[in-house]
Write a protein that binds this DNA or RNA. Structure first.
Length: 669
DNA sequence: GCAAGGTC
């Protein structure tokens, strides 16, 4: 019988796939590491016939890269030496060593290595690591990989019968990423820390803290600082608008002006007077049409994190920690996914059925099973590695911690909403012609709440009922006023907004975005506060004069990010150095993303990309070292955070002025 | 003492 060694990226996949393939499984723990299991069974592969299989796993990357020991000592070399210091590959810890030993042993007797890592770039690279380990004890082992995007039985069995080759290019792209992140992260972190720490000790929270640079944490910080200055430098602009209301059948109907508002008082006044002169208005249209509010898309990691900070009173990092616990315990599916479409072959009804026993949403689930089920909408993303986040098994809320319960409830409700029907309503729009101006009023009647019943995170309410109007009817409006308002500044960046920005700019992956955010907090680059404190924002955009401030629906306390003195100084400092591409902006990372894609598509090679990128960054590094004085302007800041600067605008401008001035002359604040 | 990426 052919001996086949299968290796997955994570223990849960090994378990799930083995169970699909096997009739009977023998499970043992790998030597020296209890949580890595070896599943042994027989399977009849198309390619190799009846085979004896050992299915095991790694747990993410096995190897880590670091500099040769003499370059690990901060005093032992200049930070710039890290641009070409030799890099060694090591197995990080004892657990990983046990994982390596396990694969070495199992590979010895196998003739085929079948790799079951995730089908993404990192997964491809982990595949090459596994190959390397196996070939240490068995040079002639034949290596293939499985291509799969979910762990449905039929899909997995099909993948088992159709092996592919590892994608060397994707693995090479990851190698490039690793080398660049290591060299640049270490070099700039040491440069900043060694030069700046002595003069800004008072701004650091801990003695041993560092002033780190990372290709993800800096752009993330950049977004926070950028928004901070947009709020701070905002200049309100006055505008004028017309507000019309008419009372009919004892119902006061407010009409909106089709021009919304104008920034010219004179013009608004003229239009206002034209309306007054006209005296009567004519109903030009009354339209009633069916409308609907779409049910949400299947749940991705990014969306889970955003919703977590909006509705679950947890920051993104906390949400992920909790989601991982729920995943490990087997209640929800893998929580790190970019996919917002369910595979049509997936059996969703069974998953819905498992929720029918819940006292809160069980009835809703039962109704779906009794005929209300609708296939979920499909979004645009598919990472080909994982399905959208969904509940796998039912667990009663009382056996979870309070935080676990909230996240589980959200995942379940979201899933049930996806399998439900859009909410249906009827919307009536009335247009009035008054003088030369058009006004409109709309009324909404929600007819069927459908998915909203199980998904309280969305709001869609019937508006006030409109009195009947008839096309062509004339009327003398009860009231017409000209009102003045002004534009309002955006709010400080909230966590959902920050996550959206990182997502849109390719900063970090779904699995790491929350970590980068946590890191810039830990480094004391940013701090958070509940929205609404300290003025200056929270209204968003150029609102209407009397538009109510839309505080985070129901006051769930979304957090907003404010940069600290240190955070502002770093970003401002680099901006003042006037590189073509500032380290704080996402361009460099985005460009690097394109380079990685070029490697994957064979248009470029790992070595070319690494050399080219290192050269570019080294230029920035040298200029930064030469002009360290600009960054050292941090010294001019008083011992304070920028939050107090908001209250004291005089000091605030003093700080900014000095940063600009510092390049030309030295002055005390 | 540095990064970002996997995962437990």
């Amino acid at each position: 019988m052919v001996q086949i060694l299968c290796v997955a990226e994570k223990p849960s996949i090994a378990k799930a796939v083995a169970n699909h393939l096997a009739g009977q499984v023998t499970t043992t723990s790998a030597r020296g590491i209890a949580w890595i299991k070896n599943y042994e069974f027989n399977f009849n592969f198309n390619a190799w016939g009846h085979s004896s299989v050992c299915f095991t796993s790694v747990a993410g990357h096995v190897y880590e890269k670091d500099f040769e020991s003499r370059f690990r000592d901060w005093q032992g070399c200049s930070p710039q030496a890290l641009f070409d210091a030799p890099i060694v590959t090591t197995v990080a810890n004892n657990d990983k060593k046990a994982i390596v030993r396990n694969i070495e042993e199992k590979a010895r007797s196998a003739s085929i290595l079948y790799i079951w890592t995730d089908c993404d770039r990192e997964g491809e690279h982990i595949g090459t690591e596994i190959r390397e380990i196996a070939m240490k004890t068995n040079r002639r082992i034949q290596v293939v990989r499985a291509r799969f995007s979910n762990i449905e039985r039929a899909h997995i069995i099909n993948a088992a019968h159709h092996p592919f080759a590892l994608d060397e290019r994707q693995a090479a792209a990851v190698q490039a990423r690793m080398e660049l992140d290591l060299r640049l992260g270490a070099a700039f972190t040491r440069l900043q820390t060694l030069n700046l720490k002595p003069i800004i000790k008072h701004l650091l929270t801990e003695e041993k803290s560092v002033i780190s640079y990372g290709s993800c944490q800096f752009p993330a910080l950049g977004f926070v600082v950028d928004r901070y200055f947009r709020v701070k430098n905002f200049i309100p602009e006055p505008f004028w608008g017309l507000r019309l209301s008419h009372t009919k059948d004892d119902i006061k109907v407010k009409f909106n002006w089709s021009r919304n508002h104008l920034f010219d008082r004179m013009v608004t006044t003229i239009l206002f007077e034209r309306c007054l002169t006209a005296r009567t208005a004519t109903v030009t249209s009354v339209q009633t049409k069916a409308t609907s509010k779409w049910k949400p898309l299947p749940l991705t990691t990014v969306e889970l994190q955003k919703m977590g900070s909006k509705y679950l009173r947890m920051d993104s990092h906390r949400v992920m920690t909790i989601a991982e616990q729920l995943y490990t315990k087997g209640w929800i599916s893998y929580p790190r996914t970019e996919t917002d479409q369910f595979d049509p072959a997936m059996d969703l009804r069974t998953l819905v059925t498992r929720q029918t026993q819940d006292p809160n949403w069980g009835l809703f689930a039962q109704n779906l099973i009794n005929g209300g089920f609708n296939q979920p909408r499909s979004g645009r993303n598919n990472d080909k590695a994982h399905p959208p986040i969904h509940p796998v098994n039912y667990v009663v809320g009382t056996s979870l911690t309070e935080e676990e319960r909230r996240v589980y409830e959200f995942v379940v409700r979201r899933f049930l909403a996806c399998c439900s029907e859009d909410a249906k309503g009827s919307q009536t729009t009335i247009h009035l012609l008054f003088g030369s101006e058009i006004f409109s009023a709309t009324g909404l009647i929600v007819l069927a709440r459908n998915y909203l019943v199980v998904y309280p995170y969305d709001r869609w309410e019937s508006s006030q009922v409109l009195p009947p109007f008839i096309h062509g009817e004339t009327l003398v409006p009860t009231e017409l006023r000209m009102e003045e308002g002004q534009t309002t500044p955006p709010g400080f960046l909230t966590e959902p907004e920050l996550i959206s920005l990182m997502d849109a700019n390719g900063i970090g992956t779904d699995a790491t975005m929350a970590e980068h955010i946590a890191k810039i907090k830990k480094r004391n680059y940013v701090m958070t506060q509940p929205r609404g404190r300290n003025g200056g924002g929270g209204r968003g955009g150029t609102g209407n004069a009397d538009a109510p401030a839309r505080e985070g629906q129901g006051g769930t306390g979304v957090q907003e990010f404010i940069p600290t003195t240190l955070g502002v100084a770093l970003i401002e400092g680099y901006d003042k150095l006037e590189f073509e591409k500032s380290l704080s902006k996402p361009f460099l990372r985005k460009e690097f993303e394109l380079q990685m894609r070029a490697i994957c598509e064979g248009r470029s090679t790992k070595n070319d990309v690494v050399h080219q990128e290192l050269e570019q960054y080294q230029e920035v590094f040298v200029k930064t070292s030469q002009q360290m004085g600009v960054l050292k302007a941090v010294r001019l800041f008083p011992f304070t955070t920028f939050r107090s600067c908001i209250r004291n605008s005089a000091m605030d401008s003093c700080v900014s002025d000095h940063l600009i001035e510092y390049r030309y002359r030295t002055r005390e604040c």
